[in-house]
Amino acid sequence: MKVAITGSTGFIGRHLTAFLISKGADVQAIRREDLLPERKLDLIALLNGCDAIINLAGASINCRWSKTNKLKIRDSRVKTTRTLVQAINELGNKPEVFISVSAVGIYTDKKEIWSEREGAYDEGFLSKVCQEWEAEARKIHDDVRLVIPRLGVVLSKDGGAFPKMALPFRLFAGVRIASGNQGFSWIHLKDLLEIFWTIINTKKIKGVINCTAPQMCDNLIFTYSMAKESHRPVFLSIPSLLFKLMYGERASIFTKGQKVFPYKLLNYGFMFQFPEIKTALRELCH
């Protein structure tokens, strides 16, 4: 099996590459320069013969949301996906599946729980980026099975958001953010890697897939679970206004959140290794 991956040097991409190789796959990294318009023919040649193509490309949202950075966040997802889809559509030998990730930030936080069967979109910056991102992926040829995994916060010891989230607790400065009622949809990296493998090998899986643990979680549950597993206290609550003063528009990452349910994964029989936050944090903190 030959699998091509954009964003292969990123946090998820590095782990996914190693995971797929361990499964016996031949992994082809698609570099940023391969996606330049003038390299279109080279990209087509690179993708030819691939059984699966996984699109993980996207600049980090963990930056100041200046006009320049917001454009970079958008274009690194939307334009990259557009270029990739155009190349795939011109292939004579098309892949069986195209997996193009998105995020649960596409959903509004105005309802208790969203599944793939129902969902209203937010009007903020990140949701609009996700909507454009997914729209480009949907331009793939009908002969190619399209899967759009909407990722929750990916938790791992050695990258992503978790080390930054854990640091305040290690420094005895764990806090609850605002009311703590904002949703916190997450997925353990080990489960996410298995989900990708399941998608590649299960032809009936199509369309949007919520990649989140089945336990409904919010900031309050996460904060006190983290305090328990790290044997640290929770001292105070930081008001949302302070985050807005510190981070501006980017404060929404911390003060807003969605509760997202993985209906399709459970319906397909996927077994989570880490279905609850306490089991995930137990592994991550020790």
Rank of each mutant, 00 (worst) to 15 (best):
V208M: 10
S66Q: 00
R150M: 07
L20V: 12
R77S: 01
R117C: 03
H231G: 03
G105V: 10
T202C: 03
D122I: 04
M226I: 12
N219I: 05
C285M: 15
I113G: 02
R117H: 12
S102K: 10
M246S: 13
G13N: 09
G180R: 10
N93C: 11
E283N: 13
V153S: 03
G207I: 10
K244Q: 14
K23M: 09
T81Y: 04
V97H: 13
K190V: 08
D34F: 11
G159V: 07
I187K: 04
F11R: 02
S66T: 15
K190F: 02
I221Y: 12
D142L: 09
R32M: 09
G124E: 14
I44E: 13
D109F: 05
L41H: 12
A178M: 00
C130Y: 02
G119I: 13
R39P: 00
P95E: 12
V234E: 11
L241Q: 09
I277C: 11
C285K: 10
D75M: 03
F270D: 09
K157G: 07
Q273V: 06
E38D: 12
P37I: 11
N62L: 07
V27R: 09
K190L: 13
P275T: 11
I277T: 02
K228Q: 15
D218R: 13
K228L: 14
E136Q: 15
D26Y: 10
I177W: 04
E33T: 13
P95K: 13
L220V: 03
M246Y: 05
V144K: 06
P163I: 06
N62Q: 04
G92T: 15
I5F: 00
P168M: 10
Q86V: 00
R138S: 11
M1I: 05
A137Q: 04
L56N: 01
G159L: 10
E123D: 15
I30Y: 07
R250A: 15
T223N: 04
S8C: 06
T212S: 15
L241A: 13
F274M: 07
A52F: 08
D218Y: 13
P95I: 13
R282A: 12
S22K: 12
K157W: 00
H286W: 06
G160V: 03
A178W: 05
N48E: 12
T81V: 04
Y224E: 14
Q131K: 15
F162G: 04
I195E: 03
V101L: 14
R232P: 02
K40W: 00
W133R: 06
A45Q: 14
D51N: 13
V147T: 05
G58S: 04
I73L: 01
I53F: 01
L46G: 01
T17Y: 09
S230F: 03
F162R: 04
D109I: 09
F270L: 03
N62R: 00
T81F: 05
S240R: 14
N48G: 03
